[in-house]
């Protein structure tokens, strides 16, 4: 048992527990914070995989920007307590179906490839560096990258249009 494996098991346990706590928590602020904690743990897992860039981006984007906005909205609306209106009726069956699908996919991949050992050893030092990621992103994956950015742009314009319409009605 290498030290990496011990670290992985510990972090994985923390990540899973944080995820469960996030779902189980009655208070939305606690849920959001558990999710942040989960993101930080996953970022550490990325570090273990020699992917410092992904780890740091994970923290900056998910923990640092998106979850902050989540918290902002929760606090601004004052909806810390779960509403009494009850759960959505089709939530439970859908969750079971999706969970089973994910488990099936994982099982398929694992059964086909087996547990890959020593993956980190045959990686070059350049792996996961900002330069190499940038190169791949702007050559091999250029089209998906641009599509994503257009998607984000559309979403942004949509948000702006909605707020402008509201403002004009308010006037």
């Amino acid at each position: 048992m290498t030290i990496d494996l011990v670290l992985f098991l510990g972090l994985a346990l923390i990540a899973v527990l944080a995820a469960i706590a996030m779902i189980a928590s009655r208070n939305t602020v606690y849920s959001a914070l558990f999710l942040v904690f989960n993101f930080l743990t996953v970022a550490t897992l990325y570090l273990l995989l020699n992917a410092a860039f992904i780890a740091v981006v994970q923290i900056t984007v998910y923990a640092g920007a998106i979850m902050v906005l989540f918290l902002f909205v929760i606090m601004l609306l004052g909806t810390e307590r779960e509403s009494i209106g009850g759960r959505i009726r089709w939530q439970m069956p859908l969750a079971i179906v999706l969970g089973l699908a994910l488990a099936g996919e994982l099982a398929y991949v694992l059964l086909r490839n087996g547990i890959v050992q020593g993956l980190a050893a045959d990686l070059s030092t350049e792996f996961g560096s900002p330069a190499s990621i940038g190169r791949v992103l702007f050559s091999e994956y250029l089209v998906p990258f641009e599509v994503t950015s257009i998607l984000l742009l559309v979403a942004m314009i949509g948000a702006i249009v909605i707020t402008r319409k509201l403002r004009r009605e308010g006037k």
């Binding site: 602020v29 914070l33 942040v36 930080l40 410092a52 860039f53 740091v56 981006v57 923290i59 900056t60 923990a63 640092g64 920007a65 902050v68 918290l71 902002f72 606090m75 810390e80 560096s129 900002p130 330069a131």
Partner: peptide, 25 residues
């Protein structure tokens, strides 16, 4: 010497807000 040094600064700066938010809430 790590190759994401600047990003590290940004990452830490971006989670610095949590303490303040949590304190306020």
């Amino acid at each position: 010497n790590i190759n994401v040094g600047v990003l590290y600064i940004l990452a830490v700066a971006s989670i610095a807000v949590y303490g303040i938010v949590i304190a306020g809430w």
